[in-house]
Structures are given as C-alpha cells and as structure tokens.
Design a protein around this nucleic acid. Structure first.
Lengths: 150, 150
DNA sequence: AGGTAACAATGTAGTACCATCACTATCATG
DNA sequence: CATGATAGTGATGGTACTACATTGTTACCT
C-alpha cells in the first residue's frame, strides 16, 4: 500500500529531476525543452513539414511556427520550400544541430546506463518488466479516460 | 544497453502520461498543475506564508503571489494576516479545498495501487528497490551538477 | 532612540509555451 | 472553374515563470 504510493512518487520524482537537469543544461543557449522536443522529433523523423511536426508533437500548428522561428534564428534548423506543394514548408536540421543531437542522444544513453548501473543486477530484469507493465497499464487508463471524455 | 535506454524512456513516458491525465482532470476548473502543486504543499505543510511556499516549491516569491491570487479567487485558499509579523501573509486551505485534496490523495493512492497491480507480483519488490536506486542515483548526479555549475 | 540593513509581498516588465480564431495562399476535386 | 480542404501565419489571450524596483515592516547595531 505505502509501497504503491512510493513507486509512483519516485517515478515522478525521477522525471522531475531529469527535466530540471535538462533545462539547466540549456542555460546560456536559446534552447528550451519544447524546442529540443522539436529537434528530437526531426532527428527521428527527418525533414518534415510544420504540419507533420504539429501532429507528431501534439501541439497546435501555430505553436510550431513559433518554435521553428526560434530554432531557425538560433541556427538549429532551416526552412526550405516544399518541392511540389507551395503551401508547405520543410524544416530540416542544420548539420551542427544534427551533430549536437547525436551527442545528446549519446549522453542520454550514458545516463540511462549509469542509472541502471545503480540497480542491483539481480533486480534489473524485474525492474524493466515492471516499468514496462506500469507504462502499459497507464497507457490503457489514459486511453480509457480520453474515450470517456470524448 | 538498449534496455537501459528503454527504462529511462519508459519512466519519462509514465510521468508524461500521468501529467497529461492530471491536466485533463482539471479541465473546466481554474486549477492547473502549478496551482495544484501549491495546494498539495499546503496540505502537507499546513497554513504557510507565501515566502515559505516559494522556498519549498523552489519558485520566486513573485510567482507565488500570482498562483495564490488565482487560488484565492477560485475559493481554494484564503489569505489572512500573520498574527505577529505584519509583513507576512498566511495562506490557508479552504475547507472544501482540503476535502478535495483528500480525495485527490485517495485517487493518487488508488492509481498507484492499480499500476502496481499490473506488475507481476514476483517482480514488485525488485521494481521498488530498482526505482529507489535510480531515484537515489539521479539525486546524486543532479546535486553534483548543481555543485559544478555553482 | 535612530539609522540601516534585511525581509515580505507586490507592481512592472519581459520571455516562453500553448490555444483558438481569422485570414491568405495554395492545392485538389467535382 | 468553383468549392472545399489544407499549410502556414497574424492577432489575441491565458498561464508559468523571471528579474528589478518599490513599499511597508521588522530587527539589529551603535
């Protein structure tokens, strides 16, 4: 019972700590969590229209305009016209930003490994299974909520 | 290796899902995540000065003024003068808000139990130990980062 | 006591994120 | 070719946060 509370609380604590640490890393740059989310998506999906970004990140197209504005003036991305559809704009990562994201990905992996290293080896498999189970169950619950309120 | 990445990513996913679900629950009210954080703290700490709230929540005093403004006009808290220090203002939960927070706490516990219920019983203890270990290690790392940049 | 420094809260001003609505330019289809 | 959908953006507004300046109050120090 108390353990149940503790697990969820610890999970939330972990992500809070992680996010505040990320944010601190961006100090001095024009990067923010929301902007990096855009970069991250571009790494995964490749050059995209703003509309596609908006859909994948689940924010309004209008918001993407602002985020890309900031990233563009920071030199992280470029806007190029779509080859066939003149309404669309293709957002691409600048080479330096792609390099930076690769580094960030490596850091992320290293951190993951570090954190997992703090776990008793005998507990690791159960931990992974447990976290997966929790994530899966939570996805179910959220989906059910969305249904209900739709 | 891949598992290491997956664990951290899953943890982050869990807290994202959780937070978006929380936010949806506040639809239609004047409550938001930041404001509920204030209420939550008042439940745990009892009536407090705004200064104390700012310190515990690690935000600027000015920000607390705005949050308490919103909570006050929503009828969730009341401002009363400090008995001895006329500079200070004491923020207290309204009875209805205290009731609501008790409910929220119960829901939180129920959700925790539900999520833990999705985990194979044989994995639960290891999961709790593992998450604790990760949280502890992450606390260390963040503290070290703060030191380094201070 | 009298002056000064620290303190609590708030006004002002500014950044960032996010949303909706209205509008323009451009497809795409009947 | 007209009509309706689509892609992006301007305008506007709410929330969350910050730093700086200001006001009233307290506490300390000589």
């Amino acid at each position: 019972m108390t353990a149940g509370i503790t697990v969820l609380d610890r999970l939330l604590e972990v992500s809070e700590l992680f996010q505040s640490d990320m944010a601190r890393a961006f100090d001095g740059t024009s990067l923010t969590t929301a902007r990096v989310r855009v970069l991250w998506d571009l790494v995964a999906a490749g050059p995209s229209t703003q509309h596609a970004l908006a859909e994948r990140l689940e924010v309004s197209p209008r918001n993407i305009t602002g985020l890309v504005d900031a990233l563009e003036s920071g030199g992280y991305v470029t806007r190029t016209p779509h080859p066939t559809d003149r309404r669309s704009i293709i957002v691409s990562l600048e080479a330096s930003a792609e390099q930076m994201m690769r580094q960030m990905q490596a850091d992320h992996a290293a951190l993951s490994a570090d954190l997992l290293g703090a776990v008793d080896p005998a507990d690791r498999e159960a931990l992974v299974r447990g976290v997966d189970a929790i994530a899966g169950r939570l996805r179910e619950l959220v989906a059910a909520h969305r249904e209900a309120s739709a």
